[in-house]
Design a binder for these strands. Structure first.
Lengths: 535, 535
DNA sequence: TTGTCTCCCGTGGGGAGACAA
DNA sequence: TTGTCTCCCCACGGGAGACAA
């Protein structure tokens, strides 16, 4: 039984059903998608209700908002747009705002207009909410005023924070076997394939349209491209690079285009970027007008091709790729966004801010269209669908105690699975060569976002420390040496103190650099809940 | 592909490896067991160390203990037995008690003797601990006084509290498929089968001896039996009942005895009981003298049958049964205990109270015997299988905690914990090593961060030891040689004691150096780990 | 001897205006 | 207009003896 040998690297599917879901613990949204192979008839579902224009606002939490002292500042225009008007004749007008979250729980906030100068605030009720949702500075608060009075609240976490902690008794191998076996069963029995899409982490379902487009583009070695990313504040960043290699990187999955393009980025970036990408993630490098044009074309076609839009390629995940590489590629919060993205449309807006709830998208179109709308919404928003995401383990560097649990997991799995051995030796070597000396990721404890240093531009440890202090705005803290420790993971996966090796040796073997506090953190759980700034 | 049809309902296996583990979040203990089908040869490990007498106590938390007001009352005899003596000449004698938990975290408690009448209390530090571990009334606190001053704390939760929450995106089908596929692969490839045993919830591994016994007992419909359970305060409860049905209840697994007996209980009970049981869970109803007799017989036989003791039946789990009923990890807390249980023997007491184990058996027997001895030790104590004291959820092992430290702590400590002892960036600057020659990594147990020594700059073992003491801030500890063992992995991957080879030879073959506690070395030998870093 | 209660008091945090970016 | 600070004050909870089981 080696189902992997008999499963093609991609499967043409139709969308059978889509369920929007919320993780009850984390408020993380995801979509459960049921797919059938394209040979099977798709059922025709009930038309959708009509989407109405919706008032809403979102605000990235400031340090004050998320601190334990006091409440939440509401921007004036947000208060006016989304809350019932206050009786301004009173000295300190106030009212109670009630709103439900994605789980259906009701939250009550005292909305008060006070202070000198006057401003809008949430006081009573806010800290309960912030504590319950474990909000920290940088996370976002979303408020949607319901037409019927039923308002909604939602959150969106800043950098990619920990999703689900995998049960410690479920190994990656197990999940992997489970997924492949499930897919195989679905193929054999013409059964549905149930998959999960998590925004910003799933990468295994691609809309057929997108896939075909990518195949037609014919990316060759040496050709230049751009790829959209998401910055810390959710805005789009676009980086350009050059394709330097093109092949099947997984021996298990022949003819898989998934991450088949090896790339070199033009410039350094503040966010981590993969060194292998899939054709559908990138665009040919073009002038802005070109981009606009191709966008328009694409938009047009998407309106015509309802049928194809409902079809998806399911990229079967590969052991070497997903399991082996996930730790490298994952923390990348890669949101591809198409230039055609109408970020002003309410539905896409909602998705972007993780308040998908309650499908208000309503059309009289048929299911295919309906699905397609939703899929497109997702696709437009992120261009990545899906995955049984072997997820949490993906995001290994960021902060917090949870993260640590995951780190252990990874280490453990490495030990068990000998992951390194599963990927082809060539691949490993190639990767080392590419990552050596040019771009090295740096992570700092309690900072969710990784940075990158180019060691080839530095001439020694002192220089490196200067650079790190600059990157993380540490002034002289690292040189002062009373709080931080600098360590690195080497090419053998060991974590070593920075400074023991000669500089050139260090540059050759360093994979990632970490800055950690020296302080013994006794209570990991508690420490993990505090915001970096307040702690 | 329907592997389920081709996997027998039970597999005869030998124990290949056992790893004690702790869930970092919950302090829940579990064991990772690697099994090989009985056809494969089992390797022969080194005999076991001697278990020493250990002082410990456990206390079920009262409402006052777990309330947010005030501290923790310590019974007088516990304080006297387990804490250093207080200076009773003072008006309110007090001291600080330091102890590590299974994760290696240190907890500090103020132990004070005060009030009228005088009593022993934990004050400062207790509430932090109780909060962090999320203790509630009814949970238990465990304290073990280490011989070397390194005391240990642990917890044991009262009723079966929820263990790992399965990730919302991993379906039961997926796990099920994963498990069956993994087992199938192991069968086909004669590979190891890795399973996880969780005390009080796993029921799929049974010692061969126990299984054969059960088969010989021939339980028939209408025959009466007793079955042991565990009450809320961890004491044994024994309920009797009658067998009312007997058949394969799972259509998937033919000839499976697993939960093949439908039963009716004699009386109502305060704890949930299953209505289907497996033959090895129950005993024929008998008078106490009969029980004693059969116990003696069994004990005798167990000494004769070294070979069979190391074999296990792995009951392949079935969809309806495992996935459905045990909900992945937790369910009815069925503790089998044999009437022969000598609950006065220290080991059984320890196990029952979640303080374990280290098999006190030392023998010069071979692996099979060794494994078997472990099994028998456990079996004698509780008749519950596996490994080294799996009884309690928070089972702790004085030496075992180190083991855990390794599995779970490595990265964490690397990042946060024990960093303080290490060199600082300042030191780094002045300490640039010129030689690019021989750099050898050194790792110390419970220190996450590796260091490097240059052996070419050293002229012998003594020098090396000096250097190691410097690197890890050990003063004279290595020379004192009462706690640490220095070992190395050589160019053939073997782990050897440092000092046996001539210095130049050593320099030629050493790959990595490890500093381990002597205890840990023993554990490694016991568990058969191949290198300190993995264990 | 030890579980619970009540009293005492310090800390932390929610709510307010001040102030400055 | 809105983010941060500081001040104020109260509630919560840790530490103590009282008291009773």
């Amino acid at each position: 039984m080696k189902p992997i040998d008999d499963i093609p690297s991609k499967l043409l599917c139709k969308v059978n059903d889509v369920e929007l879901k919320v993780d009850n613990d984390t408020d993380e949204v995801f979509v459960k998608i049921s797919l059938v192979l394209d040979t099977v008839e798709v059922r025709t579902p009930i038309p959708n209700a009509i989407h109405e224009r919706t008032k809403y606002f979102t605000k990235v939490l400031t340090a004050s908002d998320s601190s334990t002292h006091g409440g939440f500042s509401i921007l004036k225009r947000h208060a006016i747009e989304c809350f019932p008007p206050l009786d301004m004749s009173q000295p300190t007008p106030s009212q109670e705002i009630v709103a439900k979250d994605l789980n259906g729980y009701e939250w009550r906030f005292k909305h008060i207009y006070r202070g000198t100068p006057k401003r809008h605030l949430f006081t009573t009720g806010w800290s309960t909410f912030a504590t319950a949702k474990k909000l920290v500075a940088g996370d976002s608060f979303v408020f949607i005023r319901g037409e019927n009075g039923e308002s909604l609240v939602g959150i969106r976490r800043a950098s990619h924070q920990q999703g689900n902690i995998p049960s410690s008794i479920i190994t990656k191998e197990n999940i992997y076997n489970g997924v492949t076996a499930s897919v195989w069963n679905a193929i054999k029995n013409e059964d549905v394939i149930t998959v999960f899409y998590k925004p910003r982490s799933s990468q295994f379902i691609i809309s057929l349209e997108k896939f075909v487009d990518a195949m037609n583009k014919k990316f060759d070695v040496h050709s230049r491209f751009t790829m959209p990313f998401e910055s810390a504040d959710f805005t789009e960043l676009r980086y350009s690079g050059k394709i330097v290699g093109k092949k099947d990187f997984s021996s298990h999955w022949k003819d898989s285009e998934w991450r088949s393009l090896e790339v070199k980025w033009d410039e350094a970036a503040s966010i981590p970027r993969p060194d292998k990408v899939s054709p559908w993630e990138i665009e040919h490098y073009a002038s802005p007008s070109n981009i606009l044009q191709s966008a328009l074309l694409k938009n047009k076609r998407s309106h015509d091709s309802n049928e194809t839009g409902s079809k998806l390629w399911t990229h079967t995940l590969t052991r070497g790729q997903e399991i082996g590489q996930s730790s490298m590629t994952s923390s990348i919060s890669v949101r591809q966004r198409n230039a055609t993205d109408d970020s002003k449309s309410p539905s896409s807006w909602l998705m972007n801010h993780s308040v998908p709830t309650i499908p208000k998208v309503n059309s009289n179109d048929q299911m295919v269209v309906h699905v397609k709308e939703k899929m497109t919404t997702d696709a437009t928003a992120s261009y990545r669908l899906f995955g049984v995401d072997l997820m949490a383990e993906d995001h290994m560097e960021p902060n917090g105690s949870h993260q640590k649990a995951i780190d252990f997991k990874i280490l453990e799995e490495k030990k068990l699975d000998q992951i390194q051995n599963l990927t082809s030796p060539k691949e490993i070597k190639g990767k080392q060569i590419i990552s050596t000396g040019s771009r090295t990721k740096v992570f700092m404890q309690d900072r969710g976002i990784g940075r990158v240093v180019d060691l080839t531009l530095l001439d020694g440890y002192n220089h490196l420390i200067n650079e790190l202090e600059k990157l993380f705005d540490l002034k002289d803290e690292l040189h002062m040496n009373n709080h931080w420790e600098i360590v690195f993971k080497d090419n053998e996966g060991d974590v070593m103190l920075v400074g023991d090796d000669p500089w050139p040796e260090f540059c050759k073997m360093v994979k990632k650099i970490f800055i950690c506090s020296k302080e013994k953190v006794k209570i990991m759980e508690l420490a993990g809940n505090k915001s970096p700034e307040s702690g």
